[in-house]
Design a protein around this nucleic acid. Structure first.
Length: 881
RNA sequence: GGGCACAUAGCUCAGCGGUAGAGCACCACCUUGACAUGGUGGGGGUCACAGGUUCAAUCCCUGUUGUGCCCA
C-alpha cells in the first residue's frame, strides 16, 4: 500500500473511479436477480439543455437515494434519458439554419427533421455526459429518448386508445396562440406578467340617439366586436338591453346583451364582446349565440378575411401588426371624437414562456385530451395515500389544480415531435390509427389520405415515461419488475406539467400508480436567496464548481442544504467551505494509515473491550441510525448532518485524538482494528453523499476490490459490550478535558505550561477513569499529573465542578484572581438560576400533580445536580475570597 | 382577491410541548507527532408581535405584521 497523497485531488481520480463503477456493472439494473427492486425514473432533461445547478440538486438527491438502496441490496433501476423538447429543439435548429440563410419551410419537413436528428446526434448528448461528471449512477445502457421508436409506438398507442375511448377529440375553441412560434401552447406554457397598460374609454352609438361607453385594454379588437354586454341588474344600462349599437369604424350593427360577466364595478360597467379574441368574451358569445369572427391572422396581423365588407380605414389596416394597428385605431377614434379618455391601467398580460411574445387567444381547431376524466383516478390515488407527496403540503397544490383541470390542448403546430396519428380524406373526415395502413383500411381502398400536419405536446410523451421506457405496450419483464416505480424526485415547478400527467396516464394505461412517493425539493438560489437568472448574472455553473472543488464538495453542499420544502442557497463560497470537510476525511484516513490502520476481516466489534473503542462503536451505531432515518424520511440535510457530526465531531475530534497515545500501547491492536472498522462504516455511510473520496479511500485501504464500495453493504448497528457504560465513561472524559481546556483558555494559561489536575471529592470510579486516561488528558488538557486532592485546596487555584467532583488546577501566580472570581461567580449565578427554576416548578402543586412521572423524575435529578453544583461552586468561590 | 409556505444567534438553518442548538462569520489563544483546507476556547438569542389553550408554549390554537411562491 502506497501512502496517501497529502491531499485529495478530485480532478485526478473522478473520471477513473466513474469508469470503474460503470465497468463493474454496478449501475445496471438486474431484473433477473431475486432482489426487491427500487426504481427511480429520471425526470428526462430537455435534450437541448446543459447541466445547471437545478439539475445538480435533483440528480444529486436521486443519486444519493439510488446508491443508498443499492447498498441495501435492492435491485436498483435508475432510468436515464432525455425528452425531445419540441419547441426548444425546433428553435435551436432553426437558429442554426438562420445562420446558413435557409428557412425551415424552404427545407421542407423531411429535410428539416433529418437536420434535427443530425443536431441531436452531435449535440444532444451534452447533458448526459455532464451528468456523469456529477457522479450520477443511472443505468446508462437503458437510456431512452422520447422520440425513440419504442417510445413513439407507445405515444401512438395511447393516442389511438384515448381517441377510441372518446378521451381525445378535436374541438374548435380558443387556444393560447404564440404568434412568433405560430403554434398553440397549453395554459401552463403561458406566464402572466404585470404590465403598465391603458384603459381606453370608447363611445359606441346606440340606436335612438343614445350612446354607451365601453372600457377596454385592447381597443384594436373592436374590429371583431359582436356585442356590448351589460349586467342585467345594472340600472344605468338596463333600458339599452336589446338595442342595436353601430360599431364605430366598421359600421357593423351589434346588439347590447345582458350578461353577468359585465361587472358594474369595472370600467364603465359596459364591456365590448369580442368572442374570437378573449376567453371570457368567448363564453359570453356562446351564451348569446354571437358570431365569432377573427380579426388577426396566425402572425398577429390584421386580417379582413372574416370581417366582411369594411370601410376604407379598416381596409387600410390589412396586414398590419396588432400593436401598430392599435395605435392607428386609437388615433382614428380620437379623430372621430369617439375616444372619451385614456387611463393608465396596470393589468396582467399573457406571454409565451418560450418565445416571450404576447399570447393571443385564437380560435382554431385543435386536438384535446379530456384531462378532467383522467384526473379523477389520480386525485383518488393521492386521497387514498397510494401516492404520497413529500412534503405533504404539495398535495394541496396538486388537488387545487386537478379538481379544476381544463381540457389539455395536445396539438402543436410544429414539425419536431410525435406526428399526430390522424389522417384526413378529401372530404376532411378524420381516421385515427396506429399507422397509415390501418387508417387506409378504415377509409377504404383508393381513398386519398393526408396525415395531420401537427405534432403532439412534448409532455404528452413525457407523461408515458414511467412505462414507455420499460417497453410498454409490450408486456416486458421490466414492466412487471419495475412498475410501479418507487420514488419520483423533482421540483415543484413541474407538478402540473409532468407529475400529474404521469399519474393520469399511468393509472389509465397501467391500472396502477406510476410511483408511490413524490419527493418535491426546492429551487437552487444564489447566496442571497435570489433566483438565478442570466439577466441577473448570478448563475452558477455546476461544472465549473466541480472543476474547482470536486463533485463531492458540490454534492455535499446541495444535499446538506436541502431541507424539506426549503430552497437551496448555493454559492462558490459554500462549496469551498464544504470542500474542507472532504479534505478533513481524507486527512483523518491518512493519519490512520500512517499509524498502521488497515481493515482486519477477523475483527469482531462485539468483542471490543476498551472503553474508547466501545464508545466510538456506539457512536457509529447512532450515526448509522440517524443517517438511515434521514434517508428513509427524504431528509438529505439530516443525513448529511449525521455524517458530518460523526466524521468530524466523534471520529476526528475525539476518537482519533484520544486514540493517539494508544497506538503506541499494548492496546494498539484493538484500537487499530476498531479504527479500521469505524472508518469502513464511515466510508460506507457517506458513499451515497460523497462517492468519490469515499471510494478512493475504500480502494486504497483495501476494504474490497477496486471500485467496490458502490456495491458494498449499507452499514448496520453492531452489538457493543455494555454500551451505556462505554458511552458514559468516554463522555465523562470528554467533559473533563473540555472543562480543563475552558479554564485554561479563559485564564490565558499558555499551552506550553502543563499543570497538575487535582480532583476533590471524586469517586473511586472517577479517579480510576482519570488515571487510566492520563496520557490522553495530558495531551489534550495539558495535565502534568492527575490524581485526588491530597490535603487542603491550594491557594488561588482555578476550579470547576464536574459531576460529584471539583476539578482543581493549582495555578498560583498564573491566574488572574479577579478574572477567576468573575468566572466562578458567573458559573454559580447560572447554576443558581437553573436551580431556582427547577425548584419553583417542583414547588408548584399543579405541576407535581399533573406532570408525567418521567418529567418529575428528570426535574428531581436536575434539582440535585444543580444543587450540588451550587454548593461546590460556592465553596470554590469562597476559597478565593 | 384566494391559497400555501416562512419568520429562532450577524448569516444560513435545525429543533417543534418540559435544560434554546449546529455550521459559517466574529473575537482571543495555539504552527501539540493527519489536516492552518487545522486545533482550542469565547461572546452573541425576551425563538416577529398580541392574545388563548396547558401544571408547562419557540413548539399547539386565533389574530396582527412582514417576506416569498402559486392561482385568479
Amino acid at each position: 500500500m502506497t501512502t496517501l497523497d497529502k491531499s485529495f485531488e478530485p480532478a485526478s481520480c473522478e473520471a477513473r473511479l466513474y469508469a470503474g463503477w460503470e465497468a463493474s456493472g454496478a449501475f445496471a439494473a438486474q431484473p433477473d436477480r431475486d432482489a426487491e427492486p427500487y426504481t427511480i425514473m429520471i425526470p428526462p432533461p430537455n435534450v437541448t439543455g446543459s447541466l445547471h445547478v437545478g439539475h445538480a440538486l435533483t440528480m444529486t438527491l436521486q443519486d444519493i437515494l439510488v446508491r443508498f438502496r443499492r447498498m441495501q441490496g435492492r435491485d436498483v433501476l435508475w432510468q436515464p434519458g432525455t425528452d425531445h423538447a419540441g419547441i426548444a429543439t425546433q428553435m435551436v435548429v432553426e437558429r442554426l439554419l438562420d445562420k446558413e440563410g435557409v428557412s425551415r419551410k424552404e427545407l421542407g419537413r423531411e429535410t428539416f427533421l433529418s437536420r434535427v436528428w443530425q443536431w441531436k446526434a452531435e449535440s444532444g448528448g451534452n447533458i448526459t455526459r455532464q451528468l456523469r461528471r456529477l457522479g450520477a449512477s443511472p443505468d446508462w445502457a437503458r437510456e431512452r429518448f422520447t422520440m425513440d421508436e419504442g417510445l413513439s409506438v407507445a405515444v401512438r398507442e395511447v393516442f389511438v386508445r384515448l381517441f377510441e375511448e372518446g378521451l381525445i377529440y378535436q374541438d374548435k375553441r380558443l387556444v393560447n396562440w404564440d404568434t412568433a412560434l405560430q403554434t398553440a401552447i397549453s395554459d401552463l406554457e403561458v406566464e402572466s406578467r404585470d404590465v403598465k397598460g391603458h384603459m381606453w374609454y370608447i363611445r359606441y352609438p346606440v340606436e335612438g340617439d343614445e350612446e354607451i361607453i365601453v372600457a377596454t385594454t385592447r381597443p384594436e379588437t373592436m374590429l371583431a366586436d359582436t356585442a356590448v354586454a351589460v349586467h342585467p341588474e345594472n340600472e344605468t344600462y338596463k333600458h339599452l338591453i336589446g338595442k342595436i349599437v353601430t360599431l364605430p369604424l366598421t359600421g357593423r350593427k351589434i346588439p347590447v346583451v345582458a350578461d353577468e360577466y359585465a361587472d358594474p364595478e369595472k370600467g364603465t360597467g359596459a364591456v365590448k364582446i369580442t368572442p374570437a379574441h378573449d376567453f371570457n368574451d368567448f363564453e359570453v358569445g356562446k351564451r348569446h349565440g354571437l358570431e365569432m369572427p377573427s380579426m388577426l391572422d396566425k402572425q398577429g396581423r390584421i386580417t379582413l378575411a372574416e370581417l366582411g365588407e369594411m370601410p376604407d380605414f379598416v381596409r387600410s389596416l390589412d396586414g398590419l401588426d396588432r400593436f401598430a394597428a392599435r395605435k392607428l385605431i386609437v388615433a382614428e377614434l380620437e379623430a372621430q371624437e369617439l375616444l372619451v379618455e385614456v387611463k393608465p391601467h396596470p393589468h396582467m398580460v399573457p406571454y409565451g414562456d418560450r418565445s416571450g411574445t404576447v399570447i393571443e387567444p385564437f380560435l382554431t381547431t385543435q386536438w384535446y385530451c379530456n384531462a378532467h376524466v383522467l384526473a379523477q383516478p389520480a386525485i383518488k390515488a393521492v386521497e387514498e395515500g397510494r401516492i404520497n407527496f413529500v412534503p405533504k403540503q404539495w398535495e394541496n397544490t396538486f388537488f387545487a389544480w386537478m379538481r379544476d383541470i381544463q381540457p389539455w390542448c395536445i396539438s402543436r403546430q410544429l414539425w419536431w415531435g410525435h406526428r399526430i396519428p390522424a389522417w384526413y380524406d378529401e372530404a376532411g373526415k378524420v381516421y385515427v390509427a396506429r399507422d397509415e395502413a390501418a387508417a387506409q383500411a378504415q377509409a377504404g381502398d383508393g381513398v386519398a389520405l393526408t396525415q395531420d400536419e401537427d405534432v403532439l405536446d412534448t409532455w404528452f410523451s413525457s407523461a408515458l415515461w414511467p412505462f414507455s421506457t420499460l417497453g410498454w405496450p409490450e408486456q416486458t419483464d421490466e414492466l412487471k419488475t419495475y412498475y410501479p416505480t418507487d420514488t419520483l424526485v423533482t421540483g415543484f415547478d413541474i407538478i402540473f406539467f409532468w407529475v400529474a400527467r404521469m399519474m393520469m396516464m399511468g393509472l389509465h394505461f397501467m391500472g396502477d400508480v406510476p410511483f408511490r412517493t413524490i419527493y418535491i425539493h426546492g429551487l437552487v438560489r444564489d447566496e442571497k436567496g435570489q433566483k438565478m437568472s442570466k439577466s441577473k448574472g448570478n448563475v452558477l455553473d455546476p461544472l465549473t464548481l466541480i472543476d474547482e472543488y470536486g463533485a463531492d464538495a458540490l454534492r455535499y453542499s446541495v444535499a446538506a442544504a436541502a431541507g424539506q420544502g426549503r430552497d437551496v442557497k448555493l454559492g462558490a463560497k459554500i462549496v469551498e467551505t464544504n470542500r474542507g470537510f472532504i479534505t478533513k476525511i481524507w486527512n483523518a484516513a491518512r493519519f490512520l494509515e500512517m499509524n498502521g490502520v488497515k481493515p482486519n476481516p477477523d475483527f469482531k466489534p462485539e468483542n471490543a473491550k476498551l472503553p474508547l473503542c466501545r464508545w466510538v462503536l456506539a457512536r457509529a451505531n447512532e450515526a448509522i441510525n440517524a443517517a438511515t432515518a434521514g434517508l428513509d424520511a427524504y431528509r438529505p440535510n439530516d443525513y448529511a448532518g449525521a455524517c458530518y457530526r460523526f466524521a468530524w465531531g466523534d471520529v476526528c475530534d475525539w476518537f482519533i485524538e484520544l486514540a493517539k497515545p494508544g497506538f503506541a500501547s499494548e492496546d494498539a491492536a484493538e484500537i487499530r482494528d476498531t479504527a479500521a472498522y469505524v472508518l469502513g462504516v464511515l466510508l460506507r455511510l457517506m458513499h451515497p453523499l460523497i462517492p468519490y473520496v469515499t471510494e478512493a479511500l475504500w480502494d486504497h485501504f483495501g476494504y474490497g476490490a477496486a471500485c467496490s464500495l458502490i456495491s458494498a453493504p449499507w452499514p448496520t448497528p453492531v452489538v457493543v459490550q455494555d454500551e451505556a457504560q462505554a458511552l458514559e465513561a468516554t463522555n465523562w472524559l470528554i467533559a473533563l478535558i473540555s472543562e480543563i481546556r475552558s479554564i485554561r483558555s479563559e485564564m490565558n494559561v499558555p499551552p506550553s505550561l502543563k499543570s497538575p489536575v487535582l480532583l476533590q471529592d471524586a469517586s473511586p470510579q472517577t479517579l480510576a477513569r482519570a488515571e487510566q486516561n492520563f496520557e490522553a488528558i495530558s495531551r489534550l488538557a495539558r495535565a502534568s499529573e492527575i490524581g485526588p486532592l491530597d490535603g487542603p485546596v491550594p491557594k488561588n487555584a482555578a476550579q470547576a465542578v464536574l459531576g460529584e467532583a471539583t476539578i482543581i488546577l493549582p495555578l498560583e501566580g498564573l491566574i488572574d484572581l479577579e478574572a477567576e472570581k468573575k468566572r466562578l461567580a458567573a458559573a454559580l449565578a447560572k447554576a443558581e438560576s437553573e436551580l431556582k427554576k427547577v425548584q419553583a416548578k417542583l414547588g408548584n402543586a399543579d405541576f407535581t400533580s399533573r406532570a408525567p412521572e418521567a418529567i418529575l423524575e428528570e426535574h428531581r435529578e436536575r434539582e440535585q445536580s444543580f444543587g450540588n453544583e451550587v454548593t461546590r461552586l460556592s465553596a470554590a468561590l469562597s476559597r478565593l475570597a
